[in-house]
Simulated scan of single mutants.
Amino acid sequence: MAKRVLVVEDNALNLKLFCDLLRAHGYLPEPVRDGRDAVAKAREMLPDLVVMDIQLPHVSGYELIQHMRADPRLRAIPIMAVTAYAGGDDEARIRAAGATAYVSKPIAVLRFIEEVKALA
Results as ranks from 00 to 15, higher is better:
1 M>K: 10
2 A>L: 06
2 A>E: 13
3 K>Y: 08
4 R>Y: 05
5 V>G: 04
6 L>R: 09
7 V>D: 03
7 V>F: 03
8 V>N: 01
9 E>D: 02
10 D>N: 15
12 A>Q: 12
12 A>Y: 07
12 A>F: 09
13 L>A: 15
13 L>T: 12
14 N>W: 14
14 N>R: 09
18 F>P: 00
19 C>S: 15
19 C>M: 07
20 D>C: 03
22 L>R: 06
23 R>T: 14
24 A>G: 14
24 A>Q: 11
26 G>C: 06
28 L>A: 10
28 L>G: 05
28 L>H: 10
29 P>A: 05
30 E>H: 13
30 E>F: 13
31 P>A: 15
32 V>M: 07
33 R>A: 15
33 R>Q: 14
35 G>W: 13
38 A>Y: 06
38 A>V: 05
39 V>I: 14
39 V>A: 01
40 A>F: 03
40 A>C: 04
41 K>D: 02
41 K>F: 05
42 A>E: 12
42 A>R: 15
43 R>F: 00
43 R>H: 09
44 E>C: 02
44 E>Y: 12
45 M>Q: 11
46 L>R: 15
48 D>S: 12
54 I>M: 15
54 I>C: 01
55 Q>A: 14
56 L>F: 09
56 L>E: 00
58 H>K: 14
59 V>N: 09
59 V>T: 14
60 S>V: 08
61 G>T: 02
61 G>I: 14
63 E>C: 03
64 L>K: 07
64 L>Q: 13
65 I>W: 01
65 I>A: 09
66 Q>I: 02
66 Q>H: 12
66 Q>D: 11
67 H>K: 13
67 H>L: 13
67 H>P: 00
71 D>I: 03
74 L>M: 07
74 L>V: 13
75 R>C: 02
76 A>E: 11
79 I>Q: 03
80 M>T: 00
83 T>W: 06
85 Y>H: 08
85 Y>P: 01
85 Y>T: 04
86 A>W: 07
87 G>W: 02
89 D>E: 09
89 D>P: 02
91 E>G: 00
93 R>M: 12
94 I>A: 01
96 A>Q: 15
96 A>R: 14
97 A>L: 08
99 A>W: 06
101 A>P: 10
106 P>L: 02
106 P>H: 10
107 I>Y: 13
107 I>M: 04
108 A>Y: 08
109 V>D: 00
109 V>Q: 01
110 L>R: 09
110 L>D: 14
113 I>E: 00
114 E>A: 07
114 E>F: 07
115 E>P: 00
117 K>M: 04
118 A>Y: 03
118 A>C: 03
120 A>K: 03
